[in-house]
Structures are given as structure tokens and as C-alpha cells.
Design a protein around this nucleic acid. Structure first.
Ligand SMILES: NC(=O)c1ccc[n+]([C@@H]2O[C@H](COP(=O)([O-])OP(=O)(O)OC[C@H]3O[C@@H](n4cnc5c(N)ncnc54)[C@H](O)[C@@H]3O)[C@@H](O)[C@H]2O)c1
Ligand SMILES: NC(=O)c1ccc[n+]([C@@H]2O[C@H](COP(=O)([O-])OP(=O)(O)OC[C@H]3O[C@@H](n4cnc5c(N)ncnc54)[C@H](O)[C@@H]3O)[C@@H](O)[C@H]2O)c1
Lengths: 222, 222
DNA sequence: CTTTCTTTGTGAAAAGTGTTACAAAGTTCG
DNA sequence: CGAACTTTGTAACACTTTTCACAAAGAAAG
């Protein structure tokens, strides 16, 4: 095993260029794949091979990584362990985030019981519902609290991401309370457009719309 | 009430122009909002007001609709009932689609019990699992069948959309079986890249990645 | 009917995102 | 070592999507 000091640029967001959100999203996919490769003791991989595994072009892989530095070696590709470490640094995988869920119905319960989040540094630390029958119950080690307690609990638990899993008519009031509790990131499952201050980032996951959009293209084919 | 015959272009995808997928996705949002407005007896709305409700620009609204025809009236905006009808026609809301779910765990169960899909013309008609203890059980009127039965059941039930809600390591085999059963549209919840023929459309919903991507931007702010 | 105001529909410009293409760097092998 | 290969990093190009901006259409008011 060679022991050579290398001077590879590993700078988080180098020249203050604007990075597409789609790039960030793909970086997480690269990391997942690279971690799996490293785990299988595969030492290097080229952008072409990586892209093939993920259904992306080689150029896309190189361009995405290129936003953050130079991680590859001409002629042989990327060292999986090095790239894994670099991606973990870029994506802040050393940090963990506390997440609160409001609405412990079917979807909220599924999220709370999913063991995969922890592996990604996402800790679901609190859950809230307005249904008195659910309050006090425990799910995956989290005790369901009254919705009214949410702002206090968010502060006590240092929650930085809020998940909305209540019916659409209730979603805006939950969002408002998240905002007033200081939450800056919201994942919203309710099929409705939330109004929040512009420093708050909302990501909508609208499952009906995903299926409907799929069906539209199906209709076009027939 | 005036009774005037109007010659408004209501043609589905007029000049064979390519329509962005994001436009289609937004049209479903417009329809949801317009239906709600029509229901509240609001008769007309301008692109500006509609955009404001949905956090979109007026130009975006007009351009999206413009792909399919001319639905507005200068000076007053869009008639909610007319636009609702037009959008329903464009989006094929007269049709219904049969959907099959493979993997009746936490997420699969949540989907099967969600009453909202039916309102969107999405019928979850079949569910499959490989766990012998689950087979034969009923969820929201759907009896869970053995995974092996899937291709036959897909054909018998005229299923056109498949949902994958199994662990990542099992997702590819489920996708393969969907493909061999003739499915052309797949909604995939497993955090893995599926390989399918190019005439099959896969839509990934990766909840961990959504949360992680949110957290990335959170990290950038601090 | 005319003026004023509102709002549409749509080319043209701008911004954003992905692909192509290739010089430069590094590897492999005789 | 040198020739033949492989692969990176990125500038230039191509394509997609959004925003701008305004003429034209219609509404409203007197
Ligand atoms: N389950 C699905 O497959 C699915 C699919 C598409 C969309 N969605 C959307 O996701 C959201 C959640 O869906 P679900 O199936 O889990 O619903 P659900 O009805 O099973 O659960 C909703 C929960 O929210 C709680 N709640 C209601 N108002 C509240 C409030 N103000 N504060 C706190 N809690 C409140 C209810 O008590 C209930 O426990 C809904 O907006 C739904 O439209 C769900
Ligand atoms: N639940 C969540 O909140 C969540 C969050 C992020 C991602 N996901 C992903 O969604 C998928 C489903 O998650 P879940 O929480 O519902 O998992 P789960 O473990 O609760 O359920 C998975 C189900 O799939 C069944 N199954 C396994 N192999 C099968 C096969 N070959 N054919 C048919 N059925 C099979 C299992 O018997 C089980 O019932 C997973 O890929 C998971 O990574 C879930």
C-alpha cells in the first residue's frame, strides 16, 4: 500500500457558484452507490461505470462532482474511499438533523417506524397529533404529543426539519406553527400549496400528483 | 344567464409541441385549485390571482395553459367552470387507472388505505407481498396476494400502474416482474436505481433523499 | 362611443440544465 | 522509455424552461 500525501481540492462549494438542486440530489445517490462499492471492496470506479449503474451519463457525474472540486484520477477514475469521504464532507453527513412529524396517521406512522432515516443522520425525535386518543401513545420510541406542545418541543429538541402529514385543510395551520417555532425546512405531504416566508424552504411530496402525472403519459401513448 | 355559443380552442396538445413534464404536473395543481374555486362559487379568476394562490408567476400559469389552447378572456381572466372542464379533458380525468402495489408494509398499507386516490381516478385494485403471514389478509377491500400471482392478476385487473414498496434489495426483481407483466409505469419508493426498458416510465419517490436534500440547504445557511 | 383599465396570449430574451467534445493527465504494457 | 489507451475536467454548445414585455382583446364607466 502506497502512502503518498495528495493535494486534492476538497472544498465545499468552491467558487460560490450556484449549484443546481438536482445536482445535490444526485450527489446523495452517488454517495449511496459509492458507499456500497467501497463496502464491496471495489477500490476505484470511473464516471462511466458509476453513471451506468445509476442510469446517468458519464459527463453528468463528472460535472456534478466538478462543482465541488477535483476528486478523480485521469486514466483510472475515482477512488471509492476517497470519493465517499469527499461526498460525506460535501453533504454534511457528519452532522445529524432532528425531525418532527405532525400528523401521526397512516403516513406519519410509516415515517416514524422507518429505520432507514437514522442511517442518513435524520432523527425523528418528536411527533404530534390533534387526536386526543393518539396522544401519549408511543411509536418507535417517540411519544405522540399534543399539537399545541409542538413549538416548545421543537425548541427543546433542537428540531430543524418539520414534516406535515395532516389532511390538506389542516396543513397551512401546521406550517404557520412550524414557522413561528423557527423551523426553516418543511417536508409537506398534504396536497396543498403552503404559504411561508421566503427564508423557509418547503418541499412538497404529492403522491396523488406523481401517480396522476404518470397516468397522463400513459394516456398519451395509447 | 347568457347563452352564447363560443368557439374556444379546447384541443388536447394542439400542434404536437413538446410539453414539459413540469407543466403537466402543474396543470393538476391548477385543476385542484380551480375545482375548489368553482365549488366556492367564484366564477372567474385571473392568471395573477391563481398564480398568487399557488406561488407561481402569472406568466407561468398563462404559458402552461397556452400549450393546450386559449381558455381565458382578456380583461377578466378565466371562467372557473370552463377552465375546470378544459383541464379535466386535457388531463384525461374522465378515465380511471388501475394500480397495483407490491410490498404491503408500512408504506404500502398507507397507500392502500388512502381514500384520496379514488377521487383522482386512481384505483388501487391489487396488492402483493412475499410474506406468507400477510397473504390472504384484506386491506381497504383489497386482498393481499402472493407475489408470484402478480403477473396474472395484473392482466386480469387491467392494471396499468405498478407501485414498488419493498426493501431496496428486492426492488429490481419486482420491477422486472412488472415489466414482464406488461406494466409501462412504475412508482418506486425504494432507494435504488431501477433498470427497465426505455418504454417503461419510472418515477422515483425517495423520501430519505428529499429530507437529506432539505438538510443540505439548511447546512448552507448556518 | 370613447377613454381607461385589466388581462390575455405569445414571441423574444434570459436563465437554467444537460451534452458534446477534446486537451491534458495518468495508466498499462511491451 | 515510449506508444497506445483510458479517463478526467471543463469550455462551448444545445436544449429546456421560465420570465419579460407588449400588442391586442375585452371590460368598465361615463
Ligand atoms: N396515505 C397516503 O398514501 C397518502 C397519499 C397521498 C397523499 N397523502 C396526504 O398525506 C397527508 C397524511 O395522510 P394520511 O393518510 O397519513 O392521513 P391520516 O388521516 O391517516 O392521518 C392524518 C393525521 O393527522 C392528524 N391531524 C389532523 N389535524 C391535525 C392537526 N391540526 N394537528 C395535528 N394533527 C392533526 C389526525 O388526527 C390524523 O392522525 C394527507 O394530507 C394526505 O392527503 C397521503
Ligand atoms: N416507510 C417509510 O417511511 C419509508 C421512508 C423512505 C423510504 N422507504 C422505502 O419504501 C420501501 C417500503 O418501505 P416500508 O417502510 O413500507 O417497508 P416495510 O419493511 O414496512 O415493508 C416492506 C414489505 O415488502 C414485503 N416484501 C419484501 N420483499 C418482497 C418481494 N420480493 N415481493 C413482495 N413483497 C415483498 C415485505 O414482506 C414487507 O411487507 C422501502 O424500500 C423503503 O426503503 C420507506
Amino acid at each position: 500500500m502506497k502512502s503518498v500525501t495528495k493535494f486534492v481540492k476538497v472544498v465545499t462549494n468552491m467558487g460560490h457558484r450556484k449549484i443546481p438542486e438536482s445536482t445535490i440530489s444526485r450527489l446523495f445517490v452517488y454517495l449511496r452507490e459509492i458507499a456500497s462499492l467501497a463496502n464491496m471492496n471495489i477500490r476505484t470506479i470511473s464516471s462511466g461505470e458509476l453513471g451506468e449503474r445509476l442510469n446517468l451519463s458519464d459527463a453528468q457525474v463528472r460535472k456534478d462532482l466538478g462543482y465541488f472540486g477535483q476528486f478523480g484520477v485521469s486514466g483510472s477514475g475515482y477512488d471509492t474511499n476517497e470519493l465517499k469521504a469527499a461526498l460525506e464532507k460535501i453533504l454534511g453527513k457528519n452532522k445529524t438533523w432532528n425531525v418532527a412529524v405532525v400528523g401521526v396517521g397512516h403516513l406519519g406512522s410509516a415515517l416514524l417506524t422507518y429505520p432507514g432515516f437514522k442511517e442518513h443522520g435524520l432523527n425523528l425525535v418528536a411527533a404530534f397529533d390533534s387526536d386526543a386518543r393518539k396522544i401519549g401513545k408511543e411509536i418507535s420510541g417517540v411519544t405522540i404529543e399534543a399539537f399545541e406542545n409542538m413549538p416548545k418541543a421543537v425548541k427543546n429538541n433542537k428540531v430543524s426539519i418539520g414534516v406535515i402529514a395532516v389532511p390538506a385543510q389542516r396543513a397551512q395551520e401546521v406550517a404557520d406553527k412550524f414557522v413561528s417555532a423557527g423551523i426553516k425546512c418543511i417536508l409537506n405531504f398534504a396536497p396543498t400549496s403552503l404559504n411561508v416566508p421566503e427564508d423557509v424552504k418547503v418541499k412538497d411530496v404529492d403522491l396523488s400528483r406523481e401517480l396522476e402525472t404518470l397516468s397522463y403519459f400513459l394516456a398519451g401513448k395509447k
